[in-house]
């Protein structure tokens, strides 16, 4: 499968985003948050954000009392710029920009330890996933490399119906320009035949391709509607 064709597929399904750098540069993490209406410089609140997150995720955001248990058990906490509990707090305070700016959203491993141990029965992992969906809908994915990996993976599925590990890797390396990703593993993986050199083919690949095509069409329609 020629790479150009793959990239073409992917760009058709997920058009490239505008530069995220502009969004980052505009704010600093410690700007005053203006909770009331104010013309002074600072970060303004987005009035219905908290409600929107609560209703989309179906989670009782308002019950979070900031015990920090979610962050305490979070395996990605060390890599977060905004801890999970801080994201919950920012949502409570309608701080959409602050949330969307957080790299943490994209570093969440989805392990749901936070949800399991939340004393207020909030499915925190579900809130994080909802925020990812909402941020992507507004084209605000702040860790492009993670998104690129997902898209590379999905592109393989779209093309082959099943995941194709080497294909995902190649595509990801091209998209992210990280051409040395995991080369240290290559010898072992090849010797142990950990990776299938060719994609496994099956009849369902066309059906899966059609799922993606319809998904893409619906997304385009939704975007136009907005």
């Amino acid at each position: 499968m020629p790479c150009r064709q793959l990239i073409h597929h992917m760009e058709a399904a997920f058009p490239p985003r505008p530069s995220q750098r502009a969004i980052h540069a505009e704010y600093s993490m410690n700007e005053t948050i203006r909770l009331s209406k104010s013309s002074s410089p600072g970060v303004a609140a987005s009035p219905s954000f908290s409600q929107e997150v609560a209703s989309t995720s179906k989670q009782p955001i308002h019950t979070c009392y900031q015990c920090g248990n979610c962050s305490a058990g979070c395996p990605a906490a060390f890599a977060y710029d905004l801890q999970v509990n801080q994201i919950m707090r920012a949502v409570q305070l309608n701080q959409k920009d602050l949330v969307y700016r957080a790299k943490s959203l994209w570093l969440c491993l989805g392990c749901a330890t936070c949800s399991l141990r939340c004393p207020n029965n909030i499915d925190v992992a579900c809130v994080m996933e909802t925020l990812r969906h909402m941020a992507r809908a507004e084209k605000k994915a702040t860790v492009p490399v993670v998104e690129k990996f997902w898209l590379s993976f999905l592109n393989m599925i779209r093309t082959f119906g099943r995941s194709y590990e080497i294909g995902t890797m190649v595509l990801f390396m091209l998209r992210s320009l990280r051409l040395t990703t995991d080369v240290d593993l290559a010898p072992q993986a090849l010797v142990k035949r950990k990776l299938g050199l060719l994609p496994h083919t099956h009849q369902g690949r066309e059906a899966v391709g059609r799922i993606f095509t319809r998904f893409h069409e619906l997304q385009c329609k939704a975007r136009e509607g907005r």
Binding site: F153, G161, G204, A207, F212
Partner: peptide, 17 residues
């Protein structure tokens, strides 16, 4: 004729997908 479940990337992108 089974296909990939979509793994994490699919639900990270869209629940429906």
């Amino acid at each position: 004729d089974w296909n990939c479940c979509g793994s994490t990337p699919a639900h990270a992108v869209s629940t429906e997908l």
